[in-house]
Nucleic acid binder design. Structure first.
Lengths: 245, 245
DNA sequence: GATGACCTTATGTCAGAACAAAGTATTGAC
DNA sequence: GTCAATACTTTGTTCTGACATAAGGTCATC
């Protein structure tokens, strides 16, 4: 039985109540107050204790179920799962992932030009073939070691500078340009590195690399970015959390 | 403006109303009745038309937003995104994925034995080191060509037979054994194939392969399966959909 | 003609209530 | 003592109702 944890719910704060509660419970889990396998108090009780309604509590719990931290079972209750802390792949750029985990990412812009859209990229970005695009090729390193080789395509209306892409990440530039990224489709595969890629990444020739292809959509459902990335398999992998019904 | 699509909502059916509505809208999108970029009717209107309440409609729409098919924007409405139909990676086995997509998967059980748990696997399954485990090594093919080499560990209480694993998938066996899989953490990487792996997969030696490590948890939050899989990169890749706030 | 205030529209958040369904525990009969 | 029916607990689904907030357009004013 879980102890009566006490969180502060600030009703005057603009952050939604369900989000405050979700964050508080998440903190209790990662902080160890709620060990793996322990049962959460039932929804009615939680609602009563914090002066919230059941739908609000349910939404907070749902948030954590989606994150893979809790498991619900009708007639039984809600339990804490292994706190594997695998921060599930979110809609963030590699740069942000690295910066948040304490690494100090650096970026070298290899090229930045404007070209007519190739057929395949035009299809991904839902633009007519030949439309002008911005193409940027970058080498991302962390801890002094190369990590990824990234090629990104943006519609021609964007005009990033080399400084934008060196100092911060591509996604930070897009946000500053008023773009709100909402959804992305991505495809992860593997293949052998080509000679130039291996050289840039500091890997032996013909070594295995992870490939990632991503198309990102903004909040009106329009594609705004298409990228083909290559990661050093020896230094990087993807973590995801899958949630069943 | 979207045409007045008409779905049947069956109130006597045991399937939840929000799910029926979600499936209907999804069908309209993939079927072409709702092209990419078109706006959905607003929630109040939808609720009125089908005799549902707004929360129910919202839940249905949310379902599709999570799937990456729709995008919501406050004050504006809900729009259909590119129907990329990248069925996001779900909590299913490779076998089910293949079977559903019309392929005819076959499985060869290479070995099936009981061994004391190695340190790393014991940690993943949250069991004491040395505890008896079931280990199964399988080669999955589709269309006559090898596709994946799979090594899976189960707690000793399970006793699958070679037939179980040949005729159906591992997850189907687990479900039949009364296990309800709920969450899985997985890690995707790449590396070079070892000699034996390349031989089994029918790839040239030292070619690139995709690796996947998965720990699956049941509905009481306990780990019940740990697997290390190797996929032929030339024939397989992972698709995911990321949804931002 | 540009800019700000205001209104409309649509989604976002929250409350309170009721019944359904599934799992567990208890109780009762044999 | 065993087993089945029953009661209880807890999450699942759905409703009604209300107010908040953001985006976009309109209109009047400067």
């Amino acid at each position: 039985m879980a102890p009566a944890l006490m969180f502060d719910i600030d009703r005057s704060s603009p952050t939604p109540l369900y989000f405050q509660l979700a964050r508080a419970i998440e903190g209790a889990i990662t902080g160890g107050a709620l060990p793996a396998g322990s049962r959460l108090d039932n929804e009615l009780l939680l609602a009563q204790r914090y002066g919230l309604s059941r739908p609000t509590v349910r939404r907070a719990v749902q948030e954590l179920v989606d994150k893979g931290l809790l498991v619900r079972k009708r007639g039984v209750g809600t339990q804490v799962i292994q706190p594997h802390v695998s921060r599930s792949v979110e809609l963030t750029s590699l740069y942000e992932d690295l910066a948040r985990s304490g690494a100090s990412p650096t970026t070298a812009v290899l090229s930045l030009e404007r070209v007519p859209a190739p057929v395949d990229v035009a299809g991904e970005l839902d633009l007519p073939e030949g439309e002008e695009l911005v193409v940027v090729r970058r080498l991302r390193s962390s801890g002094g070691e190369p990590l990824a080789l990234m090629t990104n395509y943006l519609p021609g209306r964007f005009m990033p500078t080399v400084e934008d892409l060196t100092e911060r990440g591509l996604y930070q530039y897009l946000r500053a340009a008023g773009v709100h990224l909402r959804v992305a489709h991505q495809r992860i595969g593997a293949r052998m590195a080509r000679a130039e890629e291996a050289r840039l990444l500091g890997e032996p020739p013909r070594s295995a690399v992870l490939t990632m292809q991503r198309t990102a959509f903004d909040d009106v459902g329009q594609p705004v970015e298409f990228g083909r990335h290559i990661y050093r398999a020896s230094r990087y992998d993807f973590e995801t959390t899958l949630v069943g019904r």
